[in-house]
């Protein structure tokens, strides 16, 4: 069985599939300008980022220029223009996390993964993002990996977290290799 192909499809739908899906989602919104941000949020919730094709389609749906949509989307922190990693890492740099060394945690993730804040690893496993306060100040410093909040972070915990995901990945790969029956 070939898992990787279907996984690719789920993560990066090809252009036609994407356009079909975006069109279906746009049907849920009337073409009023005030729906622009909710539409963009809906698309990103589903596709994890705003593809250029999606931006053009949204512009057409609302009847404004693509540049208008782009201008609005680039204003807000929420919107991404590149697909994130499978395991997005958000490092909190709220005030409480900052005074407890949140920037050191961020640096450790960056060093461990060899990417900077805002980037995705080449294997698309991880991406790093700095966020301003996830609202768990009493647990500072905090990082969010996938949707799991990791409180009381320490530089030494960074390696463990990354390693945990890598081991999990290796295990899945191994199981695939060992799977009897159909050749890959």
């Amino acid at each position: 069985m070939n898992y990787s192909a279907s996984e690719e499809e789920a993560g990066l739908p090809d252009k036609i599939a994407l356009e079909r899906d975006v069109a279906a989602r746009l049907k849920g919104f009337d073409n009023h300008r005030r729906n622009l941000i909710p539409i963009l949020q809906d698309i990103q919730d589903h596709f994890l980022y705003l593809a250029p094709e999606a931006i053009l389609m949204v512009a057409e749906h609302i009847g404004i220029g693509a540049s208008e949509v782009y201008g609005v989307a680039t204003f807000y922190n929420q919107f991404r223009f590149h697909p994130p990693g499978r395991h997005p890492i958000k490092v909190c740099l709220g005030t409480a996390c900052h005074v407890r060394g949140g920037d050191i945690i961020l640096e450790n993730f960056e060093r461990k993964l060899g990417i900077s804040d805002g980037e995705t690893t080449t294997d698309r496993e991880f991406s790093i993002e700095r966020v301003a306060c996830v609202g768990c100040c009493a647990l500072a410093p905090v990082a969010v990996v996938d949707e799991n909040i990791q409180g009381h972070m320490a530089p030494s915990k960074v390696e463990g977290i990354v390693l945990g995901y890598k081991i999990e990945r290796d295990r899945i790969d191994r199981e695939r290799e060992n799977e009897p029956g159909e050749p890959a």
Binding site: V134, G135, C136, L139, G151
Partner: peptide
């Protein structure tokens, strides 16, 4: 079970 409770 608010966010901080869930985080903990």
């Amino acid at each position: 079970m608010a966010t901080c409770g869930l985080a903990a």
